[in-house]
Amino acid sequence: MPKITFIEHNGTAHVVDAEIGASVMRAAVDNNVPGIDGDCGGECACATCHVYVEPEWEAVTGSRTESEETMLSFAAATKDNSRLSCQITVSDALDGLVVHMPDGQH
């Protein structure tokens, strides 16, 4: 299984085994990573799975969709590399992915 590292706002890292075909959000929630809420269950409808993706991974993770862009525009502390992790699907190519988290989901 691909390994994904989630780094909390305070620097704490969590390395999890992610299921192929599921979302990065699901990998966090199913492994009890704190700081990823995923309130809507992966519908791109709440912006509570907000992460920052390192730029070198963008080619693999893809870029924001229109509805993701809209939801992120209401989130706090967004940056150019903000993504909703429910919109990134886990594949072998994501092995080693590192994402950072904001100070809270909103």
């Binding site: 809420d37 309130d39 809507c40 409808a45 509570t48 939801m71 209401f74």
Partner: peptide, 17 residues
């Protein structure tokens, strides 16, 4: 956390937290 009380989408409750 998967409940509808705050709504979903662009009108989702702004004060939920």
């Amino acid at each position: 956390r998967q409940h509808l009380s705050f709504g979903f989408g662009i009108h989702r409750c702004v004060g939920n937290r």
